[in-house]
Amino acid sequence: MPDDADVATVLAAIDLLFDMALMARRDLDAIDNLIRLGVSQANVRQIVAHPERQLRYAFAETNPPDGARLPISIAALSRVLNLPFETVRRRTVRLCELGLLTATSDGLVVPGTMLDTPGHFEALKSVHRAMTRTFERLEQAGFFMPGDLSAPAETPAEPPLRAIGRLAGEFYLRMLAPLHAWTGDPIDAVLLLCLLRRRQGEAEMVEAEASIRLGSPAQIARELGYSSETVRRRLQRMADTGLCRRDAEGFVAPLDTIRVHLQRRLAEPSELNLRRLYRRLSELGVVKPGAGFSLPSPAGRPLAS
């Protein structure tokens, strides 16, 4: 991939998005996980918007009570996620039957008990590690400008895992619109860009045009942990719109087309949303100008880079 600032910023954003996607529940598909994230973020929108509430419910042991969560209607959720109303309605009914969502007279909520499990804590720790890796990449690339990160009045004694998770979720949802505008499906976009990132430097000449070979659906499925049919269906949909093409060995993506779309569709929102994300984290005392992530890992050990 071209190593210019715009593309580097997009790839940093996509790496973070894909890291987060890999943390999702494996017993649910990508759309179900996206719906759960949308409901969860909507439930705590009033907490994210107020710094004092963020700190009150910032830590592993300070899970917001169900009474503090704001429900969201199916119609509002379908607008936020840019998914068809009937798709959201049908899937939320099933998620409620599984106990993963609760339907109230005012809308949908994620029960607090679902956010107070060992599995959820492990996911929050993984989010923390992913945010650290992305911050270090951006800092090494000179991404942050003077004034981007604020110096907090005090640093919390432990990582505010819930607050970090909420801000990461907000970032994910803010990136849905530009990803949807690019490919017509944000999950398709994350899949394609993750493959491009992993194949960086492997461009080859295919039919006299510089292209990146993505691989066969079976190979990609093994690499990323998806089903072969899911990968095949999503890549074929992108091939139908010209973002990649299929040959006898699998799928390839034309570099020039991808580069133009990366810069036109994703460079500006990636930059804006990354700056917003890490500015909010600096306000919590999680990152400091010139000092990186200032907190130890939840286990008391340095985070892996």
Rank of each mutant, 00 (worst) to 15 (best):
V7E: 13
A153Q: 08
P160E: 08
A8V: 15
E97H: 05
G201I: 00
Q219H: 15
Q41D: 11
N273L: 10
L11H: 13
L70V: 10
L195M: 11
V80M: 00
T117C: 00
E86W: 02
T132M: 10
P289W: 09
S228N: 13
G184R: 04
G250K: 01
V231G: 12
A49W: 05
L149I: 03
S211A: 14
R137L: 13
L70A: 11
R275T: 02
E52A: 14
P71W: 03
A123S: 06
A49M: 08
P118A: 06
Y226S: 14
R199F: 03
D3L: 15
D106M: 12
R232Q: 13
A221V: 06
L81C: 01
D247W: 00
P51M: 07
Q41A: 11
T62Y: 05
S105Y: 05
T102F: 00
G225D: 11
P289K: 08
P254G: 06
Q54N: 15
S211K: 01
R197A: 07
L101S: 07
G215T: 00
R280D: 15
L277M: 04
I35Q: 11
R265W: 09
F135K: 08
S216M: 06
P269M: 02
P51V: 06
L224H: 10
P186W: 01
A157D: 14
P298H: 05
T257P: 04
R166K: 11
D240S: 12
A177S: 12
T92W: 02
R198Q: 13
L81S: 01
V127M: 05
L196M: 14
G292S: 09
V93F: 09
R162P: 14
L77C: 01
S126W: 03
L161C: 03
D32A: 03
E154G: 09
V127T: 09
R26Y: 01
T9Q: 14
R162K: 09
L83F: 01
V110A: 00
Y172D: 11
M114S: 13
P65D: 03
L95T: 06
G184H: 02
Q236N: 13
P302Q: 07
L77N: 00
L138S: 04
N273W: 03
I74S: 14
A151Y: 13
R36C: 03
R166L: 09
Q54T: 11
H120P: 08
G201D: 05
L277Q: 07
L124A: 14
A8L: 12
R89H: 11
N82E: 13
A203W: 01
L149Y: 02
A12P: 09
T113Q: 10
R234S: 07
R36D: 01
S294N: 13
C194T: 13
R26K: 11
C194M: 09
A75L: 10
